[in-house]
Design a binder for these strands. Sequence first.
DNA 1: ACACATCCATACCGTTTGGTATCTAATCCT
DNA 2: AGGATTAGATACCAAACGGTATGGATGTGT
Lengths: 204, 204
Amino acid sequence: MTAETKFKSHDATREKLLSSAYCEIRRHGYQGASINNILESTGLTKGALYHHFATKHALGLAVIDEVIAVNLNDWFIARIRDSETPVETLLDVIAQLGSRLDEEAILLGCPLNNLIQEMSPLDEQFRHRLNVILEEWQSAIHTALLNGQRQGTIKPEIDCSAAALFILSAWEGCIGMAKNRQSVCPFQICLQQLQGYIRSLMIL
Amino acid sequence: MTAETKFKSHDATREKLLSSAYCEIRRHGYQGASINNILESTGLTKGALYHHFATKHALGLAVIDEVIAVNLNDWFIARIRDSETPVETLLDVIAQLGSRLDEEAILLGCPLNNLIQEMSPLDEQFRHRLNVILEEWQSAIHTALLNGQRQGTIKPEIDCSAAALFILSAWEGCIGMAKNRQSVCPFQICLQQLQGYIRSLMIL
DNA sequence: ACACATCCATACCGTTTGGTATCTAATCCT
DNA sequence: AGGATTAGATACCAAACGGTATGGATGTGT
């Protein structure tokens, strides 16, 4: 009970820091993220931050592990992996992506892809963790396609691994392009083409 | 003659600065790019830099206009737009992309896409200039597909504008994913899938 | 040859950066 | 209850940041 309340309040400020850092990084990138901004938006001080995180670098890694990875898993990866009608679900998730994201979300882009583009050449620890998420994602699409083949909805001659990699790349590519257009419309067009590609893998 | 030599030496240091800034930005992003690093790698000083460029911001815009836009135009956009066998050329250019880029080039990613992901939400002038390049690129692919339709190599029912947008998105997406994998192999697989998509638009 | 503009080096500036040392409450364990 | 640990606020720091002011060369135009 006492340990629980302590643990809860402990997590409370830690979560606040993580959440604020996530927003700041999402907007300005990791390098552009300002520790002072993060603290200002939480009302906390450096004492709190550096009590929970050794360095800015550690904070960045924690944001990846505890925010980005979790969100992506809940929203996309787990849904696709665990579906009993995986190909339908894959198409559904992409459709929802096009209809549910507002302009601001599009402008800010995919948190995973943002960090990949910024940090992969700069920091091996960042790169590795982002790569793990990416591979889980690709693996989820891969097994979805394999299940589709088993269920007879995906053409048997398809290389599901390569197709999964391409779907993921195109997915992130669509979001990336939309980030520059600042508009939902071309984004939806792009996602429709991606759905068209996926349907071309299917047996009609 | 005198005016010409003056102009040449003028351009010489200016080009040095642009080239060095391009490399620095490619590695660290615009925000992460250090003016001092740029100067150190050229052997020049701040007097030189701020004589030719008013601010770091102006330098960044000049890199886009005078290096990135020019390079992309020479390597991809103009080639695709001006080809008499546009679809073949498009496939060729993508194939060359997979075979000619070494691991370091892949690790550093597409200079255009890098800046798009970093700067689009942060600076309207950056976003606009990058958008212009992107639209020229998409337009080049678009007209290539339209020419293909006229030549009877592309299926008439294809929405060439949407397909061009998707090809461009997937293109950048492939490079972006490869940036994290740090390997040529998945990149080539991804590009092969993109070629497969383009072939699915063609009349065999 | 002389006034003038261009080019760029040197030295400096204020601000912001991530990070640290210290100190005070609060909480935990026995 | 009381010593020990944890949580977090405050004040400070050196370094790096982008940017500026000045001054001296090197031409350039007349």
